[in-house]
Write a protein that binds this DNA or RNA. Sequence first.
DNA 1: CTTTTATATTTGTATATACAAATGTTGTAA
DNA 2: TTACAACATTTGTATATACAAATATAAAAG
Lengths: 148, 148
Amino acid sequence: MNVEEIIKTEKKIPLVQRTIIHLSLVNNKITEELNAALKPFGVSLQQFNVLRILRGQKDQPANLSTLNERMVTKMSNTTRLVDKLLAKGYVDRETCPSNRRKVEITITDEGKIVLQAMDKAITQTEEQLVGSLGKKEMESLNILLDKF
Amino acid sequence: MNVEEIIKTEKKIPLVQRTIIHLSLVNNKITEELNAALKPFGVSLQQFNVLRILRGQKDQPANLSTLNERMVTKMSNTTRLVDKLLAKGYVDRETCPSNRRKVEITITDEGKIVLQAMDKAITQTEEQLVGSLGKKEMESLNILLDKF
DNA sequence: CTTTTATATTTGTATATACAAATGTTGTAA
DNA sequence: TTACAACATTTGTATATACAAATATAAAAG
């Protein structure tokens, strides 16, 4: 990925700016490809993330706040994300008996099955995205990203 | 920025996945802070980008396709981005006399003035974002990002 | 025990983005 | 010169996201 080529400029971009733009371009590519990989399954990347978090709960239900703090989105939209998954039958939603303010979200069996298929597609896409990077390089990248 | 801390998990995330998530988190932080820096000016990051591209044209008008290919958005939305800037008086839009399919967008004097103020805010935010990175580190980061 | 405050989620709404189709213009081939 | 394809932009619409306010429950204070 060449920054100057993508944004079609011949001028030399200052290093700081270039870094910021570069990160944004890479992120765009990543989300585009991941969303494309999920398209056949009819779910968005965010919906996939919710399912993945729920599976990580090992049959323990997650409430909305928990889901929300593990992803990058606003509470109100997490509600609507779950709405979508509910409509597809991939999750269950029940009010928590011990604290009726909370809701408990769990992944359904059907959800687990489709998630497994999605996982394959996502993993493959992720591997492909970082395909040009060696293990050492990826480690360096993670260390550099930690500085943000 | 610690990935595990942000997404609140104790589990070790596989390197490939961690890299992808890491990039997404950093990008989120960047766009959040840049948008916050622009908030006092009442423009979005995308609108700012349009203005910056127009200034780069050195009083030469840019048509929509040109604008569009230098940023990461769809044509239809570029039209609407320009609508917003037009309403604020920061750009002019005229149909190209030599080819009436095209439109010519130019930045107004008012646009140039506000852009200068925005520039300061953005530059400052950008510097702050990469503040923990040295020149060498930034260069390494750019090289690694090129591999995507 | 009532009022207040804090917590958890939802609703309403504005803005942003993605995708498909429509419009108007230009170039080109029969 | 007319019909048709290509180009540049716009419109319509669905979905996604951000922000503020509303609802409902629980906990704490008086």
